[in-house]
Each structure stands twice: as structure tokens, then as C-alpha cells.
Design a protein around this nucleic acid. Structure first.
Length: 927
DNA sequence: CATCCGACACAAG
DNA sequence: CTTGTGTCGGATG
């Protein structure tokens, strides 16, 4: 269940008469428990309560009681031994009048009237497996409103199929409604609930005219008081103020309301819209208009702390520092206020305006403190809302973003200046539109956010079609600073559609031919850098970490650096969680660029306790490592004298060629000869890491006919044929003609094979390199070194290599994704003497021996960082000792030092290769 | 054109 | 929720 569904279930429960014995089960049902789970609790099998209540292990201990006994019942739950031993997260007591609950992990308490407990449903969201963030817990309202609006939206679309075909109008209409609900609950409309009441009264006898009444009200809000009589505004609509803004200009047409839609509307109006929180309302409501997103309604939410990871280092930290520095000095405070009034914040992927709203609110907070210290607490804000600009592709979020900013402004005015002052300046809304609906990668940012103080009118080389009227609006920030921020969409190169590819081509096509491998988000960085060449600005984006790892680095970053921009701060990989706990958060990094060389560079990371660590550094390179830039290109062959590495063989067999132990035994029983002849051990990464056993059919061309006479094999091969022939891939289809062989073979006969899994957990301190006998078929989940000298294995097993791979290769989630071209072929190794090789070989053997001593422990067991055996760790330690002495004559102090040395060696290595191109493979061939 | 490589959604404890 | 898998699509030389 998503939060919206839960809210609805909980609210419905509170409306029913209180049923003392049933309540605990009803409550659990509302949070998504299945009937079977409830039945088991009822039967007592899983109910562990020792106070006559209902206790669900790991979740909640609930007790209902006679009227007036809530306090002692809650106390009994609190001290109940079972509450502790069954690890209940919550305790809850109610008598149908009062309601009390506690979060046993110190997350606070709820005490309210029974009828009001649905307002606290966010408190219990962990029960439904939804990770809560503080803001959510306090924002039951936003989820509730989202759910109600969603219902209305769907109902309206049902009754108005023509509106479904004009989503922009529909979205605009929804934004108008939200505004009216907010306005009628905050005295912006005179009279409490004016909008809802007017609609209700005027349509009480005839719901079919709802849309006409509403349209008349909207028309009034777009008509200045002086013109109203001439325009013939109806009396009931005349009570509404002139709002204007772009919100009510244009057509006032409204969709037709059915009886049900009308009742939904009135119900939504009865909610207390004062409580709306623009920080999160926008991201919640956004899903309403997106068909495929609706199942996750209320799940999309970017946490404020994460947004501040971008905004604080970008400029808010500095403002706060200046505030602290100014102390009570009125002159300094004034200067700071004047500076802030000229700061513009630009989010070219603004969605529903999250970043802009947070930035605005944070700045208002700082300004309020300035005004307090200067003794001007009621002073009107000097921070213009129009300095917070955005671009958004989808029309509904764009509408919501503007609305969210308007609401944020009003709420800040109420908070810092008082209701009266807030109302005095609220209407009419500014007619400017600072949120542009369009494709940020195609629009000209300089026109939307023109350079300061220059008066330059930039001709948009990439501005399509109709000129945007927004370009005429000037920022009120002559001589001010610009900060670009946001969380643009990430889309790996394989998932971009034709239009998105074209977006990237327009930006990168004339700069590099490798633009096709770039993530979509790279476009925002490049546009920001280009923007920065015309005017000084700093830009910080949340981004997939893949643009700072692996193959994208040498494509993107030299282009950014060429615009004189450098990375001024970065937050290394962390998980960008949304509300859904089952939805493994994307791993992201925050990267900020600026062409101002004077700023102090900072590198942020998440510490072991989840705290943010900051480090001041001289320079940050494109791998988000402290150190100089380097140009690391992937290479098809090793740059040093290590053995070339191949990927293993890819079955592409639809389950036909690979056999588990049972299937192999089956064949052996059916035909021993065939078994001996055609079955080989097979090793994928699961087999290597977790010590599993698998087999495969390995049949040479000349024996294909013979093998096909074996019934078991013939059956398996037919599986292969059917899978391959129905494939969408040409290469695979062709391979259906020879089902007895693996789909992609790179196999070389060998006496033994060293192998590394392509993907493996980052939690191990060393890469899980392995060694198998030559007859074993190495699957494509591994890279293989056939008959390579064993010192190659010593390299792979080293901490140096671990660090290199972790930085240079692309990762899958946060796990390692090994690459031969990017990681192995580029690995900087000093020239090894025969003695060095002998020493390293010995080290590799020692590692293998240490592993063997723990037979049958698997690599996963042995390399569990918590439980790594001492002798094995010692063997690795000696390996590192020997290898690192070869590098620098001593051990490295830490991984940063290792990386810095490796980068340095790489730079030298490639520089000398460029100086002496004759030594390349091609050069030798000619000679 | 024939490899070869990286991505990712899915699946299994 | 962590860790690994099967196969596609498209880059590369």
C-alpha cells in the first residue's frame, strides 16, 4: 500500500463506531496487513501480547481498554517484557475516546482524541514498510490532500474525456483549484471557506452547473474591481478578489462535474489547507497526473536534508557564515541583506519546485534574522520571488512549482511578519511567470536567466519556434550572484529515446564523437558550464554517480574543464532514498562546478555513522578524488606487461546448455559415455564466490550430430533453439543454427585459469579473484586470464587494485563492476623484475594456501569483512606489503594515498607512451 | 561486419 | 534488502 491508500483506510476506520475488541485488527488492516496475517494473530499463534492486547512481532503492541484507562494501559504496554523481547516498534492504547501511542525507538509520542488519530497516521508509516522522514510524519495533510485530489482528478477525467486530451488545460485547472482551497483557508479570500461555500450554495439544487459557477468565479479573479461591473460579473463571484497572475488569465472554462465529482470537490474544500507544506506537497501531488506513477502516489519525495546537501555548500553556508560574522553590526547586516536580494537561484530541472522552495525558505529565514537584529521585524522581504527560476518539462509540475513558491512566500510572510502584513502584500499575484515549461536542454538558459549587469540580449542559437515572453522579465539582481542547482533526470545511454539522444547530440555533437555513451544528466552539466562562460555562476546538481566513474569521465569532464570550470565541491556516492523502502534508492553524487578559482574546494562524504564528513582539499578531479585531473582512456590491450584479460563464455542458451548438479546427474544416469564426453564443470560468479557447482554441455562441431543422438542433450538443445530463434537480437537468432555451442565464445584452452567476477560486492576488502583448472568453462559473469603467470593474480588480489577498480570502473549500484578495458588494461604497474615476479607469485600461492586451509569455506565466507580469517588476512597483508614496496618502497598510509600514486603513475605511463608511439602494438606490427 | 562491452531489470536467499 | 544473473543493444575497430 502507498501512503495515500493508508491514509484513506485509516481515516475510514476513525469514522466507524469504536469496536473495542476489533480495533487492533482494524488498525493493522489499515496499514496493509493481509487477512491471513490477521487471522494468525487472532488465533493467537503469532500474538505474543502479555497484557491482553495484540502484539505483532517487530511491529506494534496494541491494547484497547475501558473508558478512562488509556494512560495506565499505555504504561503497562511500555513496561511489558514482551514489548521489549518481541521488538515492538510502537505501542498504542485507546479507549475509543482518547488515543495514545509511543515510538519505542525514541521517535516521540502521539496523544490525541480518538477521532483525530488519522491525522497522525504518518507516525505509524514504518508499520507499512515505509521509511519515514520527519517532514513526512508531520505532513499527514499533504498525503491526505494528494489522495483526495487524485480521486477528483480521475473522476473528472472520466466525465470529461475531451479534457483528458488537453492535459495542459486540465493541469492548469487543478492548479487553480489548489490555489482556491489554500486561499479560502488563509483569509486570502475574505470569509472562511468562501470558495467551497459559494460552490456548495450555488449548486445545491443542480450539480450540473458546478463548472459554470466555478468559471464565473475564475473570471472574477481575472477581472480588476473597477472593470467588474462593465464585465457583468455575477454578484456571488464578486466577493472574490482580483488575483490575476497567470494563474487566472486565459480561458476560464472548467470541466463538467458529476454529482460524485462535486461531492469530492466539497470534501477537499473541507480539509484545512493552511497546513499545506510546499516543501513536499509538490512532489507528492506530481504523481496525480502521471498514469504509470499513480501506484506510487505519495511515495515521491525528496528529503529536505538531501536538498540541503546541494544548497548549503553552494551558497547557504556562506550566507550563514556572513550572518554570524556580521553579529549585530547594522551596516554589515544591511550589506548582507542587499546581497541576498540580488541572489538568483535557477533550477533548470525544477519538477514541482522543491529546490527553489527550500532555497527560498532558507533565505527568508536568514533575512528574518537580519531584520530581527536590525530591529525591523515587520519589514517587507527584499527577496523577490522572481529570482527563483525554473525550467520544467511537464506542465503539471511546472504549474505546481509556481504555486508552491507563491504559497511559500505567503507562509514566510505570515511566519516572519504576521498574518496582516502577509495579506496586505499577497494580491494581486505577480503576472510574471518564472517557471518555464519546456525542455531545459533545448532552451537557452541565458535568455531565461540573463547575465547580470551587462544588458546583453542573447540570441538563442538553440531556442526553437516561438520566442518565450518570459525572456523579457529581468531579474532584480543587477550585479548579483547566480546559483544553478537541481536534480535533473538521469538516464543511461541505452534508455534514452530518440528525442533525448537528439538533445545530447545538439549539446555534445560538435565537441566529441563519443557523446552517445553519456548519461542524460551530462547535458545539464554542459549547459551549466556553457552558461558560466557568459556570466559568473556556480552550479551544483544531484547526479548519477556514473558520470564520475568509468567511461563517462574521459568523455564529459575534459569538455567541462575546457570551459574553465572546475569542481568546487562534491558529495561522493550516497543513496538518494525516497519514501519507498522496497525501492532501492539510486546511488547518486552531488557535483558542483564554478569558474571562480578562488573558492575553497570541499569534498563531502558519508561517514560510518551516517554523518556528513567534509574535507578541504586543493583540487578535486573528475573522479571526485583530491588530486590533479587526468585523462584516463579505456584501452583494448594492457598498457603494461600483464596478461590480456578476456570475458568468459556467454551461453545465451535459454536454460539449455547450463546444467545444475541434478540435471548433470540425470544425464550421467541416462548415458555415462555422453556425460564424460560432453559435460564440463562451469563457473559463473555465483560458483566462484559462493562455492556452488554447475555444469554445462560443451560440444565441438564435429561431435554435434553424435551429441544430438542422446535424448537428454537433444531436448536441451531444442530449448536453446527456441530461445535463440525468438530473440530480438540478430546475432542470437543466427546462433540458433548451432545450438550445441555457447552463444558467444572467447574460450582458450588452458592448463589453468585465473578469474575475477564482473560484479561483486563492495563490502569485501579485496576483489574475489579465483583460480580453476583448465577444463572448467568460465562463464561470462567472470573475466578470465588463461594460463597467466600467477603474479597477475597477486596484482588483482591487492588493495591497490581494489582501490583502482573502485574508482576507475563503472559501478553497479555501489558494487564493483570489473572491466578489462577500463580497469585491468589501464592498471599502472611499475616494471617488474624477475625477482619481483617470483615474490608476487609466492604471495599469490600463499593466499591460495590460506584459503585452502579453511576448506570448504567459500570466498563469500572467507572475505566477509567481519569474519575474515587471520591467516588469510595476513597472506593478503604480505601480498600488499610486497607489492606496495615495489611501488614506493614502503606501505601506503591509506587508500587516498594509493589512489593518488596510481593516478600519478598512470599519467606518467601514458605520457611516455605518447612520446614513444613506436612501442604500441601497431608500431611493432609495422617494424 | 564481427566481435566485444556495459547496462539493467529481474531473481533468489 | 543484499548480491549476483541472463541477455540485450549498440559501440568499436
Amino acid at each position: 500500500m502507498n501512503p495515500v491508500e493508508i491514509e484513506e483506510a485509516v481515516s475510514n476506520l476513525a469514522l466507524e463506531p469504536f469496536d473495542r475488541p476489533e480495533f487492533p485488527f482494524q488498525f493493522l488492516r489499515a496499514f496493509g496487513n493481509k487477512e491471513t496475517a490477521l487471522q494468525r494473530l487472532r488465533a493467537g499463534n503469532t500474538n505474543q501480547s502479555d497484557v491482553g492486547g495484540v502484539l505483532q512481532r517487530g511491529h506494534i503492541h496494541i491494547a484497547t481498554c475501558a473508558p478512562g484507562a488509556v494512560d495506565e494501559t499505555l504504561a503497562a504496554l511500555r513496561t511489558s517484557p514482551k514489548t521489549l523481547s518481541q521488538k515492538a516498534k510502537f505501542i498504542l492504547a485507546t479507549d475509543g475516546e482518547a488515543f495514545a501511542a509511543e515510538d519505542m525507538n525514541g521517535g516521540g509520542t502521539v496523544a490525541c482524541k480518538y477521532a483525530e488519530f488519522p491525522d497522525h497516521f504518518g507516525f505509524f508509516l514504518p508499520l507499512a514498510g515505509i521509511t519515514t522522514v520527519e517532514q513526512i510524519r508531520e505532513s499527514s495533510f499533504d498525503i491526505k490532500a494528494t489522495g483526495r485530489l487524485n480521486k477528483l482528478y480521475i473522476e473528472l477525467l472520466k466525465d470529461n474525456p475531451d479534457w483528458a486530451r488537453r492535459p495542459t488545460d486540465m493541469n492548469h485547472f487543478m492548479a487553480r483549484l489548489i490555489f482556491c482551497f489554500f486561499a479560502e483557508d488563509t483569509d486570502i479570500f475574505l470569509g472562511d471557506g468562501l470558495f467551497s461555500k459559494t460552490i456548495q450554495q450555488m449548486t445545491a439544487n443542480d450539480h450540473s452547473i458546478t463548472h459554470l459557477v466555478m468559471a464565473e468565479i475564475f473570471r472574477a479573479m481575472d477581472t480588476k474591481p473597477a472593470e467588474r461591473e462593465a464585465q457583468g460579473i455575477k454578484r456571488y463571484a464578486n466577493q472574490f478578489p482580483y488575483v490575476n497572475g497567470q494563474l487566472f488569465s486565459g480561458s476560464t472554462e472548467c470541466p463538467v462535474f458529476s454529482k460524485i465529482a462535486r461531492s469530492y470537490l466539497l470534501h477537499i474544500g473541507s480539509l484545512d489547507w493552511q497546513k499545506i507544506n510546499p516543501d513536499i506537497f509538490g512532489s507528492m501531488i506530481q504523481a496525480v497526473t502521471e498514469e504509470d506513477e499513480r501506484s506510487a502516489l505519495g511515495m515521491h519525495y525528496t528529503s529536505v536534508p538531501n536538498i540541503l546537501k546541494v544548497l548549503n555548500p553552494l551558497f547557504l553556508d556562506d550566507l550563514r557564515a556572513k550572518l554570524a560574522e556580521a553579529e549585530d553590526n547594522p551596516r554589515k547586516l544591511l550589506n548582507l541583506r542587499q546581497r541576498m536580494a540580488k541572489i538568483r537561484v535557477f533550477d533548470p530541472a525544477c519538477g514541482s519546485g522543491n529546490f527553489l522552495v527550500i532555497a527560498y525558505k532558507q533565505m527568508r529565514e536568514i533575512e528574518a534574522e537580519i531584520n530581527r537584529r536590525r530591529g525591523e521585524p515587520e519589514r517587507r522581504s527584499d527577496i523577490p520571488l522572481t529570482n527563483f527560476r525554473g525550467i520544467e518539462l511537464r506542465s503539471f509540475p511546472a504549474e505546481i512549482a509556481r504555486l508552491a513558491l507563491i504559497i511559500a512566500e505567503y507562509q514566510c510572510d505570515v511566519l516572519y511578519r504576521g498574518q496582516k502584513e502577509a495579506l496586505a502584500v499577497f494580491l494581486p499575484l505577480s503576472s510574471e511567470n518564472w517557471i518555464t515549461c519546456g525542455n531545459a536542454l533545448r532552451l537557452d538558459w541565458l535568455s531565461l536567466c540573463p547575465p547580470t549587469g551587462t544588458g546583453v540580449k542573447v540570441q538563442a542559437d538553440d531556442l526553437f519556434g516561438t520566442p518565450l515572453n518570459q525572456t523579457e522579465i529581468d531579474f532584480e539582481n543587477e550585479g548579483g550572484e547566480t546559483y544553478i542547482c537541481g536534480n535533473p533526470p538521469y538516464l543511461g545511454s541505452t534508455w534514452q529515446d530518440a528525442e533525448q539522444k537528439a538533445d545530447l547530440e545538439r549539446i555534445f555533437g560538435h565537441r566529441t564523437k563519443s557523446w552517445k555513451s553519456l548519461d542524460y544528466v551530462a547535458g545539464w552539466f554542459m549547459k551549466a558550464a556553457d552558461y558560466g562562460t557568459q556570466t559568473s555562476a556556480a552550479a551544483a546538481f544531484v547526479s548519477t554517480n556514473s558520470i564520475c566513474q568509468g567511461q563517462q569521465v574521459p568523455i564529459l569532464w575534459p569538455l567541462i574543464f575546457a570551459t574553465k570550470h572546475e569542481i568546487i565541491f562534491a558529495h561522493t556516492s550516497f543513496k538518494w532514498n525516497n519514501l519507498a523502502s522496497h525501492n532501492a534508492g539510486v546511488t547518486v553524487a552531488i557535483v558542483a562546478i564554478s569558474n571562480d578559482r578562488s573558492v575553497v574546494r570541499r569534498l563531502y562524504s558519508i561517514g560510518s555513522e551516517g554523518e556528513t564528513l567534509a574535507k578541504e582539499v586543493q583540487h578535486i578531479n573528475a573522479y571526485l578524488v583530491a588530486g590533479q585531473n587526468l585523462d584516463l582512456q579505456k584501452s583494448t590491450s594492457p598498457l603494461t606487461h600483464v596478461t590480456p584479460m578476456d570475458r568468459g563464455d556467454s551461453a545465451i542458451d535459454g536454460g539449455g546448455l547450463l546444467l545444475n548438479a541434478t540435471e548433470a546427474a540425470e544425464l550421467e544416469a541416462e548415458n555415462k559415455v555422453a556425460y564424460r564426453q560432453f559435460v564440463r564443470p562451469y563457473i559463473g560468479s555465483e560458483e566462484l564466490i559462493n562455492g556452488k557447482l554447475r555444469y554445462c554441455l560443451w560440444i565441438s562441431d564435429d561431435q554435434a550430430a553424435l551429441a544430438n543422438d542422446v535424448r537428454f542433450i537433444a531436448n536441451r538443445l531444442s530449448l536453446v533453439v527456441s530461445m535463440r530463434s525468438s530473440s530480438s537480437k540478430a546475432q542470437t537468432k543466427e546462433a540458433a543454427a548451432w545450438p550445441h555451442k555457447f552463444g558467444e565464445i572467447r574460450h582458450q584452452p588452458s592448463a589453468y585459469t585465473i578469474l575475477v567476477p564482473r560484479v561483486s560486492s563492495e563490502n569485501r576488502d579485496f576483489l574475489p579473484v579465483g583460480l580453476v583448472a583448465g577444463g572448467t568453462i568460465v562463464g561470462d559473469r567472470n573475466f578470465a586470464l588463461y594460463d597467466a603467470p600467477l603474479w597477475n593474480m597477486a596484482l588483482i588480489a591487492s588493495r591497490l587494485h581494489w582501490v583502482w577498480i573502485g574508482t576507475v570502473c563503472v559501478r553497479m549500484r555501489t558494487d564493483f563492476s570489473y572491466s578489462n578495458t577500463l580497469g585491468w588494461n589501464t592498471f599502472p604497474v611499475p616494471t617488474l623484475t624477475e625477482q619481483n615476479k617470483a615474490d608476487l607469485t609466492r604471495c599469490a600461492e600463499d593466499i591460495l594456501l590460506a584459503r585452502e586451509a579453511h576448506f570448504p569455506a567459500t570466498i563469500a565466507d572467507l572475505y566477509d569483512p567481519e569474519a575474515m580469517p587471520e591467516d588469510l588476512r595476513a597472506a593478503h597483508d604480505r601480498n600488499d606489503e610486497v607489492l606496495e614496496r615495489i611501488y614506493i618502497g614502503r606501505r601506503f598510509r591509506n587508500d587516498t594515498e594509493r589512489l593518488e600514486k596510481l593516478f600519478e603513475l598512470y599519467t606518467k605511463m601514458t605520457a611516455s607512451a605518447a612520446a614513444a608511439p613506436k612501442s604500441t602494438a601497431k608500431g611493432r606490427m609495422k617494424a
